[in-house]
Nucleic acid binder design. Structure first.
Lengths: 202, 202
DNA sequence: CCGTCGATTGACCGATCAGTCAGTCGGTCG
DNA sequence: CGACCGACTGACTGATCGGTCAATCGACGG
């Protein structure tokens, strides 16, 4: 029975991983459930044995990854040892390294879910919002400590920070910028430096 | 004949405007061509008289708006009278006011085209890129003049700037932030101030 | 008036695809 | 060994929807 359920989980995982690859390559709307089954080397019907429907597969891909991001954001936010810059760098690094490790997952999360104001985006509205709130809280805390200037609304700063990261990932997804390890490290540095230090010459 | 062709253009426009409303409300992938025809008060087949296919309708909605944006960006970039802050504010104001005036158009442009790394996004890759390049050029010029610090790559700064705007619009589209005229003006101010001045306390 | 031609109509066709389901297989337990 | 049960299969169905096209309308010129 333990073997059975372990084998089950492996099959489920195989289907999920196949779905990520297929969604990333052809887009959720332009792939067929049979593509997922073929990619996983599994019969068509088995997808429906493990998942309610096609939407549920995408939901799970998204929630799995976004959940990890939320943990990192909320953990960084609560850490009293870190400066705002360090907290923001930590969050940005996690997202950017998620891309380095699994670009397909991040592409699906961003392109197929986060950015769809209709359909999927709307369904996960609250979960996405939690991430933005966490980042805004990092800014708000730092403002209260006098570390960051108080005249920019934290929610606004959070939106720009997150928007910046998303656009960086999008450039990588499009293949418009290189995304080698060094590029990724520099992207985090530049993002934090731009937002905190500002572009103005000294 | 003049009347005829004017009437033609009006019908075409009516279909295009109907399509914008329908795309914004239900999303390109989840609406039917018959929805567009119904919304325009026109027979199904007439859509195909004026447009090659469903994709072509979306293409035109996108290109029409993005073309205006490109003009503003490239004009601002070339204006020797303006500071970098003024140029960025000009671009941001145009985009933000485009949203104020026609939120549905901007929603379609961003959600249905710009953010689709697959399918549509790929087709308009070069056009989208021209916008990013223009913004990057504004930064590069200012760096050459010593107005902005030289150690952040211009293309990178442009990406963060554009990503910030897009995320602001997305928040408005989701209804997560108010988008009244005052909010819009402040959004531009805060964005430029954040990017140029930086968040660090003085 | 009538012929021409583009605008307009909407029924229809064909392709696609999500989801179903009747059945097979193979391991486990009594 | 046989009954049971859940994993697994994939052909099939029903619905959706993009795109076609033959027919009609109506303005205009001759």
């Amino acid at each position: 029975m333990a073997t059975r359920s372990a084998a089950n989980l492996e099959k489920r995982r195989a289907i999920l991983d196949a779905a990520i690859r297929v969604f990333a390559e052809r887009g959720f709307n332009h792939c067929r459930v049979s593509d997922i089954a073929d990619e996983a080397g599994v019969a068509y019907g088995l997808v429906y044995h493990y998942f309610k429907n096609k939407d549920a597969v995408l939901d799970e891909v998204f929630l799995e990854r976004w959940g990890l991001m939320l943990e990192v954001i909320e953990q960084a936010q609560a850490d009293p040892e870190l400066t705002a810059r360090e907290k923001l760098a930590k969050v940005a690094t996690f997202i950017v390294e998620s891309y380095g490790h699994r670009p397909d997952v991040m592409q699906v999360v961003i392109v197929e879910v986060t950015r769809q104001a209709n359909t999927f985006g709307r369904r996960h509205w609250a979960t996405i919002q939690r991430g933005h709130d966490g980042i805004a809280q990092i800014v708000a805390d730092a403002q209260a400590r006098g570390e960051l200037r108080p005249d920019i609304p934290p929610s606004f700063a959070g939106i720009v920070f997150y928007g910046g990261i998303e656009q960086i990932l999008t450039s990588w997804i499009f293949g418009l910028m290189p995304a080698e390890p060094d590029d990724r490290r520099r992207a985090v540095e530049h993002l934090v430096e731009t937002l905190c230090g500002g572009l103005d010459a000294r």
